[in-house]
């Protein structure tokens, strides 16, 4: 009954305005590309992008110039004569304090620090997070609280006690010592990250696996790990960039022959003897930044996805 009435009314309206359907707006609403909103949005984005890209541009350009050209030219001008000499020098010959074999030593030190620290901290933190989220063992809440509190204690406060502890353990000044320190300091934030991610996964999945007879490790490796690639990528990016960029721990906890790249970079750039070789400094800086930069480029999309997944589910 109701239906009939509705039909009738459409028919009459249709007759009164015969071409209503053909003449009116139809399909997607057209958008002007040069609307005021777009100008503001894109204008802001361009300004911000320039603000960040300009220093990078200056650095790349300067690193490709010879010293004479730097002295005469303005810093924004592209190099007249491109030379890779500064890059080679920064990598292999620049003097970092005592020895003059460039950044290469620091690079390998940093690799030897970053790779194990990242792997160990992520492995331990993901298991911690998994245990906290799914197994709710006795004292889990206390453990978690301690971790969170740990995340808020300023590093500086703990440096001296850690020096003593490392010395007692006999690893002060070695790479092992530094790796331990990085692993410990990465623990609170990483555990929190993993705990929230695992807590966001459906609990029934975990229960189903337990009914299926899977234990702690089987569930972790067979069920949880395969579902958690994004969060592992996030953790990896956080750790690699964080540890690679670290300066303070590198200076405090190692001896000069184990200095990471950042410390060596500082030594090159701040060396007081001789003329300031701006091109070598720029090349050295770029070399040092290359690793985090590459990581971002490769895994940027996964990073965003992982963060988003964490945000939605956490």
């Amino acid at each position: 009954m109701l239906n009939l009435v509705a039909n009738n009314s459409t028919v009459t309206e249709h007759e009164a305005v015969p071409d209503r359907i053909t003449s009116g707006p139809r399909g997607a609403k057209p958008r002007r590309t040069l609307s005021r909103r777009n100008i503001v949005v894109y204008g802001t984005l361009i300004v911000v992008a320039l603000y960040y890209l300009l220093p990078l541009y200056v650095m790349i350009m300067t690193s490709l110039k010879g010293m004479p050209e730097i002295r005469v030219g303005n810093i924004f001008a592209p190099p007249v004569e491109i030379t890779f000499e500064p890059w080679v020098k920064a990598w292999a010959q620049a003097c970092t304090g005592l020895n003059c074999d460039g950044l290469s030593r620091g690079f390998w030190n940093s690799v030897r620090i970053t790779v194990p620290s990242t792997i160990i901290s992520i492995a331990v933190a993901s298991i911690n997070g998994y245990a906290l989220a799914n197994w709710r063992f006795k004292g889990a809440d206390l453990f978690f609280t301690i971790l969170i509190v740990g995340a808020f204690i300023p590093y500086q406060v703990m440096i001296y006690p850690i020096v003593i502890v490392l010395r007692e353990m006999g690893v002060y000044g070695t790479l092992t010592g530094l790796i331990i320190v990085h692993t410990i300091f990465g623990m609170p934030i990483l555990t929190l990250l993993f705990r929230n991610y695992f807590a966001g996964l459906p609990e029934e999945l975990f229960k189903a696996a337990r009914v299926d007879g899977a234990g702690f490790w089987t569930i972790y490796f067979k069920i949880m790990l395969p579902m958690s690639l994004p969060i592992f990528v996030v953790a990896m990016i956080l750790q690699v960039t964080g540890i690679w960029n670290d300066f303070l721990f590198g200076v405090v906890f190692t001896r000069p022959e184990y200095y990471p790249m950042t410390v060596q970079l500082n030594n090159i750039v701040n060396s007081v003897q001789g003329v300031k070789e701006y091109n070598v400094n720029m090349a050295a800086t770029l070399l040092t930044g290359l690793v985090p930069l590459t990581i971002y480029f490769i895994s940027g999309r996964l990073f965003v996805r992982g963060i988003a997944a964490g945000a939605v589910k956490g």
Binding site: A208, R210, V211, D212, G213, A214, K222, M227
Partner: peptide
């Protein structure tokens, strides 16, 4: 006793299938 030793099977509201495994692997996991 542990769930697996009780001789029970359980079916959940949200299905709780292991997303990365095929149906066959899901069935045979236990």
């Amino acid at each position: 006793e542990e769930p697996k030793d009780r001789g029970i099977g359980m079916v959940f509201q949200s299905y709780a299938l292991y997303p990365q495994m095929s149906v066959e692997k899901n069935l045979s996991f236990g």
